[in-house]
Design a protein around this nucleic acid. Structure first.
Length: 648
RNA sequence: GGGCGGGUAGCUCAGGACGGAUAGAGCAUCACCCUCCUAAGGUGGGGGUCGUGGGUUCAAAUCCCACCCCGCCCGCCA
């Protein structure tokens, strides 16, 4: 019978063993929980307890003596996987019965195949993972690309954990910036894109935004010259200069488009006002504004979908922010909030007193806030009656909770405060259960070493460029390494290698750490990269192919080399790693795991023969081992969205 | 000023939630290994005050306190 978690079986035997021994040796002593750690070296056993150090202190005995005594007592019991127990320097070390354990592990993996390691949760939940949600104004850039890579990996992992996961994309089409692009697009006569749609939209957006900004600043400057102090005038002048140099950059890059937009926009006396008008019209749901903004947004989203298909990221639902405004869900939320004691009006502006909620409902500890910390208030409604982003997001969150028990928002950590206020708003509305299950998965920014990325200024490296470059580099590599392959094969390999490399590079680093984007990081095809793990997988497949036989009579007791045992142990621990990755939302655990398993296998590969090993039983056992490694590498890569190739 | 995140080898990062045995990888660098299952590989060398200072503990990179440095946030932007 296969085990879905062989190592857990061993661990639980060790727990039982130690518990019994404790009862016998020290009947009066109560130990709350037994914790085990992995010894630094496999020769010390596979699990260890450091219990005797604290017990020794408590009982005024030498840890070494205690450990010896306990180990001896355990040794008298009978177990399946636990072979022997030793005492070394105060530690109690538990040794697994490798012949049995290898058999159990390898046979389990080979029987369970593509589901091995994906231990199902006991409490399956409906979970919405909202990720990416890049505004439809310009192509997804490398700074934003970390989001779908993390979000998609999380969604995959949670699904494999047995949850019902739905991936949502929130289209933020309400707000000034959407009107800016729509305005420029309209000025050009709503043209058909002559290139990838989002790139096309991005150019129009940047140029329009720049021209409108300059126009606005010039008006401000004239006003300031009349009424404001000199330093204010100087500040505006400086800002204009900055935008002028951006305009010069844009004019050089896209001369025709720039000219055309400049001519068209200069026809308007006050472009700023036109944009605001459009914005209001859209929020009011006027048909012409709706048609225009939806059209240009859809255009951009079409480009996004192409990019997402390249990296195999898909969504179950595309949620338009505007729908929440038009359907009165935002109004309804505001009504409820207004009737709570946590909302006040100030100078015609509606404010949400998050601090008051926290104080009255006693949430400080629950939310992990310091006693002295005062949560800033959140503006819900402007003086002109329009709502703000976070206000609308409250309505959206409630909508999400109407179709899921848990909501995970993959959003940059710069929005931590807004996400906190949103959570507090849920408590204020009495939705404690929602609030408790509202998770902000925060990740740190991706920056470029030279300058700050800025979408508004058109200064960014697009995700598409990065993918193209990665695939191109991979193509050069594969041509160099495997010139005998056909052109089609090379292209295919280059594609999954390049894209895998990018995915890996963006998932591998802990989400809380900032990433400085360098081509070197993404185009790394050596150890600690997707290509390395993919290559290792292909290598295992190659051995199995060349063997031309099935491991019919594997003699698992012959797997006595340290390398082999370390491999078996690593394979047996995959379920634990997976569970941790899922519970703590750490996709990088799986990337690291895959890399370290690949490391071990490559060492083994170089040191020991598989097919030609003698006797036959050993060869078969090593083949079974190789097969298990193939399966686990595949599963680990799969869970973070990276393809495991059979050849490369 | 307050909040959040980060600070581990020349560089990029694991490890940190749950304290344990000599702090691990990769890149770069130097020297090796394809008569052998894929060299996108492997072996070995050099390289560390785990930001600083205290504290708790038998035991601290890990926990607590203070401080320093970097990033982000504290808007009628999103």
């Amino acid at each position: 019978m296969p085990s879905e978690n062989p190592f857990a079986l061993f661990r639980s035997e060790c727990e039982t063993a130690l518990t019994h021994a404790l009862q016998k040796v020290l009947p009066g002593i109560k130990v709350e929980t037994l914790t085990f750690s992995k010894p630094p070296n496999i020769e010390f056993g596979q699990l260890a307890s450091s219990l005797c150090f604290e017990l020794g202190k408590k009982l005024n005995q030498k840890p070494g003596d205690l450990a010896t005594h306990l180990a001896k007592t355990v040794g008298k019991q009978k177990f399946t996987l636990l072979n022997k127990v030793t005492a070394v320097g105060g530690y109690i070390n538990f040794h697994v019965d490798f012949p049995k354990f290898s058999f159990l592990t390898l046979e389990s993996i080979r029987q369970l195949g593509s589901v091995y390691g994906f231990v199902k949760t006991e409490k399956p939940l409906k979970i919405i993972v909202e990720h990416t949600s890049v505004n439809p104004l310009h192509p997804i850039h490398i700074g934003q690309a970390r989001n779908p890579m993390l979000g998609d990996a999380l969604a995959r992992i949670l699904k494999q954990r047995g949850h019902m996961v739905s991936r949502h994309y929130y289209i933020d089409d309400v707000g000034r910036q959407s009107s800016v692009i729509a305005y420029g697009y309209q000025k050009l006569g709503c043209p058909e894109p002559d290139e990838k749609a989002d790139h096309f939209v991005g150019k129009i957006y940047t140029i329009t935004s720049c021209l409108v900004e300059i126009n606005r600043l010039r008006k401000n400057l004239e006003l300031a010259k009349a009424v404001s102090p000199a330093d204010e005038v100087a500040r505006i002048t400086k800002e204009i200069d900055e935008w002028m140099s951006i305009a010069a950059e844009l004019k050089e890059k896209y001369p025709a488009l720039f000219e055309k937009l400049m001519t068209k926009i200069s026809e308007d006396e006050n472009p700023e006002e036109e944009i605001n008008k459009l914005n209001r019209a859209y929020e009011d749901g006027e048909p012409e504004a709706k048609r225009l903004i939806r059209e240009v947004s859809e255009l951009c989203l079409k480009g996004f979908r192409e990019t997402q298909a390249r990296v195999e990221v898909y969504y179950d639902s595309w949620d338009w922010e505007s729908d929440f405004v038009w359907s009165a869900q935002v109004t309804e939320v505001l009504r409820k909030l207004k009737s709570s004691p946590f909302v006040y009006s100030e100078n015609g502006v509606l404010e949400f007193d998050a601090e008051k909620v926290v104080r009255i409902l006693n949430l400080k500890t629950k939310l992990g806030l310091g006693e002295d910390y005062v949560v800033p208030p959140l503006t819900l409604v402007r003086a002109d009656g329009t709502t703000l982003y976070t206000t609308r997001d409250i309505a959206y969150s409630l909508w999400k909770f109407s179709r899921a028990e848990k909501v995970i928002n993959v959003i940059g950590m710069e929005q931590s405060l807004a996400q906190l206020q949103l959570k507090i708003a849920l408590y204020a509305l009495g939705y404690d259960k929602y609030a408790d299950n509202f998770v902000h998965f925060a990740y740190n920014l991706v920056t470029l070493p030279g300058y700050k990325m800025s979408s508004r200024r058109g200064r960014y490296i697009t995700f598409d460029e990065v993918l193209d470059e990665a695939v191109e580099r991979a193509y050069e590599e594969v041509s160099k390494r495997s010139p005998q392959l056909s052109e089609a094969e090379k292209r295919e390999i280059a594609n999954f290698v390049g894209i895998g490399a990018v995915r890996y590079a963006l998932v591998d680093v802990d989400a809380s750490k900032p990433v400085v984007f360098t081509w070197d990081r993404v185009l790394n095809f050596e150890t600690n990269s997707a290509p390395y793990v993919q290559y290792t997988h292909a290598r295992a497949c190659s051995i199995l192919r060349k063997a031309e036989k099935k491991p019919e009579k594997p003699a698992f007791e012959l797997l006595t080399e340290k390398l082999e045992r370390e491999l078996v142990l690593a394979l047996a621990s995959f379920p634990d790693t997976f569970i941790e990755a899922a519970e703590f939302l750490k996709p990088n655990f799986l990337a690291d795991y895959a890399n370290s398993l690949a490391d071990k296998f490559n060492t083994f590969y170089n040191a020991l023969p598989v097919i030609k090993a003698e006797p036959r039983g050993l060869s078969d056992a090593r083949l079974a081992l190789t097969d298990a490694i193939r399966i686990v590498l595949h599963n680990a890569l799969n869970s973070i969205g990276i393809l495991a190739p059979e050849r490369m």
